[in-house]
Design a protein around this nucleic acid. Sequence first.
RNA 1: GGGCUUGUGGUCCAGUGGUUAUGACGCUUCCCUCACACGGAAGAAAUCGCCGGUUCAAAUCCGGCCAGGCCCA
Length: 772
Amino acid sequence: MIDTVAIEKKWKDYWFNNNIFAFKKGDKNYTIDTPPPTVSGKMHVGHAFSYPQQDFIARYKRMKGYNVFYPWGFDDNGLPTEKFVEKERRVTIDNTPLKDYIEICREVSRESEKGLYQAWYDTGISADFKNYIDTSSDFSIKISQEMFLDLVAKKRAYRDEAPYITCPTCRTAISQIEMKDAIISTELVYINFNGIEIATTRPEMLGACVAIFVNPDDERFKKFIGTTVNVPVYGYPVKVMSDPSIDMEFGTGAEMLCTFGDQHDLELWKKYGIKARIILKNNRINDGSVIINMPIKDARKKIIDELQSKNYIIKIEKIKHSVNTHERCGTPIEIGISKQWYIKDLDIKNELIEFGNKIEWVPGHMKIRYDNWVTGLKWDWCISRQRYFGVPFPVWYCDNCGEIILAGNEELPVDPRLDNKKRKCEKCGSDNIVPETDVMDTWATSSLSPTLYLKHINQMDLYPMDSRFQGHDIITSWAFTTILRSYLHYGEIPWRKIVISGNVYDPFGQKMSKSKGNIVEPRAIIENYGADALRYWASTTMQGENIKLREQDLMRGRKTVIKLENSLKLIMMLANNKKPGNTIPEFPVNRWITTKMERTIKEVTEYMENNEIMKARISLDKFFWNEYCDNYLEMIKNESSKDDRRDETLSTAFSVFENILKMYSPIMPFITEELFHQANPSFSGSIGLEPYPEFDGQMIYNEENEVDYIIGVIDKIRNLKSQMKLSMAAPLDILKLHGDAKIIQKYDYILEGMMHINSMEIINSEDTYIEN
RNA sequence: GGGCUUGUGGUCCAGUGGUUAUGACGCUUCCCUCACACGGAAGAAAUCGCCGGUUCAAAUCCGGCCAGGCCCA
């Protein structure tokens, strides 16, 4: 049995050690904006499905004579890495100084990268693994900061208020995914809001009330909508507003919007753009009038007392209620607002749509998602994140006059949080300078991937790139932000084409997940079936379509690998292990297979150019299995010993086979490399750099129709033998064949040799049939 | 709620107006023919989700409905 593990090991190391896929700029270049995997994860079947689809194109283009820039990268910024480090090293920002924390994050990332690329390497991805970027390196930070400063200079980056979520116990910023719901026992307080009755679980937030909300369909409150009421105790006016998200069944059906009691408050505040009143900070309430810097509990008691003494309280109910808490310590989260950085994009929607139109989307309908997203944008892009491991903003603020102080380009990369340099405010002369403590959204750096890749090799003249490959789940993030940044910085599209890949599901169409226990590791597939079989499977779907992972579909690829190996074994045997020199085919059967091959080359090439890998592969499969193996090799193996046509036939068998290998090689690089070297022992290159077969119209011969006719006759004889329950090798003493006598006579030696016919009687007739 | 997308033999998937609807997996029968039984030959198996419309002609175009998936809200 074929040892795919050994063969694959041999060739992936060969490619790597000989820098087969290193980029050298030439006249024809093809550049790929590779998606960098995140260091906190590992390769899953989704990757094993989508990366080969990029690789098919990369390898095809290389064989088509392009100098292919297929770079490699790692994405190691942001929250996922922080969580990963927390798990791996038991290090959290609460127990570690920032400087050390960042160091450890970087260290863990570098370590993880060492093993991470291996899975892609094993899959035969032809990226240049020696030449990679990572998004947390000094290089990437420098470029990301430079580009940020460019946005500031272009008046595209600005500061404005934005909400943030913190844990008052841990005193750290937390993100949505670090929260969990908890059910707590609390009191629901019914308050008479000077005419409208509301209920709240957070009476202590009364001083942060900025509106009253009711459901627009609620008959009880319709008359209040649009009116103004005064906040009890505080006495300032707020509007009564309506929103369909208000639950009519909860409390009285009317709620106060406080900035901010919970996430729902945040959503409504954002949606309606109401001015915030922030009174809660670090677990203490300070409204400047009624409550002066009191812990939440005390403030709650005081407000209830105040309300009660003035007869505003209708009743108090004990309820169980769901709140957002910090998953690590269980403390209810706190929402505040702070000044954060935005990238302005709402004014250029039309231009962004236009850019989307200039890019070729594969499949085309995926562009609609982009269009819908851009059209529906309601806010500028907030790029500040209250995290730690990420690209720092190269920005300080004057604590005295509020001036924004930007780093100079020569200082980059810089981390203001750790920077000791003394700075002075140029405006007011104060030396009371504070650093920006937020870091950038990871997309703020990922959106620069074409720039990062090309600057890394100092070839910005190759901008825009040719292709981006990515999943449809991040069209609205990665694709969108990349197009946006490209527009803002260069006024140019980032790539000419974007190719969207689908998802992988289990055999029943279910998503794979740990909880369902239906996860399949790519490594297991490679071990059991081989990387070529895995890649073959990845080619069995239309671009952008989803796929189910089924064992039998992996088997089909493996069978093709074995069939290729056996085919070479046969023709090597027929040729006594020596590949003959090239000849021009003259004998009809050789002309026939050559003609079929040319037609296949034409078809496969057209499909490959059109990103229709599956159709290319089906066309090639049909040619290889049916025409080459089942018919051509069967015809020649009994016949090739005849001296006068031996050399030409063997030569044709080899040259056609090598073209088959070349056409298969983008999909199945390992076995094709192995067999190509076996057929050509002195060859010292790579099939991946060999020229792709070119269609040659001169090689279309008229004999095609005759041999097609003969194959029809063969099918009839095979059918007869099958009906007679005979072996295909069983001899037929006499066969009475009706049909086109001229053609049959021309090819009688093929029929006799292949079907083991001792004597044949040919009767000329319009219909072709065998007489019993 | 809006948008996109899918619905074809038991299973997976081609086919986008026109002769008996492609192939793979599975199934049945036969064949160890000196490359391959992870092979070869033959065969059974589909009213192309449902309803209606356009057309000489629809799996294919149009409308509606049903059912899945994804994205957005």
